[in-house]
Simulated assay, not measured.
Amino acid sequence: MLPQDLLIVASKTTTLLCGGFVASLAYRAYLRTGSPALRALAYGLAFVTVGGFVAGALHQFAGVTIETGVAVQSTFTAVGFLVLAYSLYARTPDGEADRSVPDGGVGR
């Protein structure tokens, strides 16, 4: 394995572990509060995280080029950011903005 391949594998593994941890925290917060915004946040973070893993796996195990891997990762990242943007505008079933966090999320 070339040094740059080792660096790619290490960074993708770190991204998977850290991103998976943060996405799981967001999902646990969703389960605790029932907030649609937190659910969308968890899914968006998961898309961004999984994209890096899928791209790395395709390159390492399926033999696709780096360019194809970057395209796959970029697609997952774009979809993930769209879901994250949606999470900022999520509404509750009654049509009001999600207010599951007291004081609009501003810490005092």
Rank of each mutant, 00 (worst) to 15 (best):
1 M>G: 15
3 P>W: 06
4 Q>C: 07
4 Q>W: 12
5 D>R: 08
5 D>T: 12
7 L>W: 13
7 L>S: 12
9 V>T: 10
9 V>K: 08
10 A>H: 12
10 A>F: 13
10 A>R: 11
11 S>V: 15
11 S>P: 06
12 K>L: 11
12 K>H: 15
14 T>V: 15
14 T>H: 12
15 T>I: 12
16 L>H: 06
17 L>W: 10
17 L>V: 15
17 L>S: 11
18 C>Q: 11
19 G>W: 09
19 G>L: 06
19 G>D: 07
21 F>S: 09
21 F>E: 04
24 S>A: 13
25 L>S: 09
25 L>K: 13
27 Y>I: 00
28 R>H: 09
29 A>P: 03
29 A>M: 10
30 Y>T: 04
30 Y>F: 15
31 L>F: 02
32 R>G: 02
33 T>G: 03
34 G>H: 01
34 G>S: 06
35 S>E: 05
36 P>D: 06
39 R>N: 05
40 A>G: 02
40 A>V: 00
40 A>P: 00
41 L>M: 11
42 A>R: 00
42 A>M: 00
42 A>Q: 00
44 G>S: 06
44 G>V: 04
44 G>T: 05
46 A>K: 02
47 F>G: 03
47 F>Y: 14
47 F>N: 09
47 F>K: 07
49 T>D: 01
49 T>L: 04
51 G>W: 09
52 G>P: 06
53 F>E: 08
54 V>S: 05
55 A>D: 03
57 A>W: 11
57 A>D: 05
57 A>F: 13
57 A>R: 05
58 L>D: 04
59 H>S: 08
60 Q>P: 01
61 F>V: 09
65 T>M: 05
65 T>V: 07
66 I>N: 13
66 I>P: 06
66 I>Y: 15
68 T>P: 03
69 G>S: 09
70 V>A: 14
72 V>Q: 08
72 V>D: 07
73 Q>H: 14
74 S>I: 05
74 S>G: 15
74 S>R: 10
75 T>Q: 07
75 T>G: 15
76 F>M: 07
76 F>A: 11
76 F>E: 08
76 F>G: 09
77 T>P: 01
78 A>E: 03
80 G>F: 02
81 F>M: 09
81 F>I: 10
82 L>R: 05
83 V>Q: 01
85 A>G: 13
85 A>I: 13
85 A>H: 09
86 Y>T: 02
87 S>A: 14
88 L>M: 11
89 Y>M: 11
89 Y>T: 14
89 Y>Q: 11
90 A>D: 00
92 T>M: 14
94 D>Q: 10
95 G>D: 03
95 G>L: 02
98 D>M: 00
99 R>T: 13
99 R>N: 13
99 R>L: 10
100 S>M: 05
101 V>T: 10
101 V>L: 10
101 V>Q: 04
103 D>V: 08
103 D>G: 06
104 G>R: 07
104 G>P: 04
107 G>H: 14
108 R>Y: 13
108 R>E: 13
108 R>G: 15
